[in-house]
Amino acid sequence: MSGAEHDFGAFVAARATSLLRVAYLACGDETEAEDLLQTALERTYRKWDRIRHDSPEPYVRRVIVNAAISRARRRAILKIIPMHSPPDTPARTDDPDLQHVLREALRALPPRQRAVVVLRYWEDLSETQTAEVLGCSVGTVKSQASKAMAKLRSALGQDTVKGVIRNAHA
């Protein structure tokens, strides 16, 4: 195995699970997430000699997120929200209502807004970094994040949010 292959193997071993989770959050389907990740890694492997010296993770993340958006748009799946497979391990149960409503609201977001939410609040990327991933302006990230959060709040209903959060801490 060459040094480059070894490096790539080490990168996959270290980061694949984290990237799979980003893919899942971006597309909402486990099988599709695995496919997105494999496709992104194949592209990365082809360009590894060029990418390996920088940080490859942002590149893979960018491919995953944008491919997820492109696929969602192409398939017009917004109206056909993927069926949710219940997790093997139960989610935290202190606020199941909120989790359910929030999950469905998150899934119902348009793909780009969902991507912004995932990148900002899951990956903890700054607005500038998020803009770089999505290939758009910081202003667009701000407006998309603002719209997404407004939709989530609206879907939940402000009372629900306050109530459930209060219950969770009661």
Binding site: A16, R21, Y121, W122, M149
Partner: peptide
């Protein structure tokens, strides 16, 4: 935002490459 982070963590905890 905190609730979103927690939801996403819960939903992806079972996923492993």
């Amino acid at each position: 935002e905190d609730e979103l982070r927690r939801l996403m963590a819960d939903d992806t905890a079972r996923l492993h490459a």
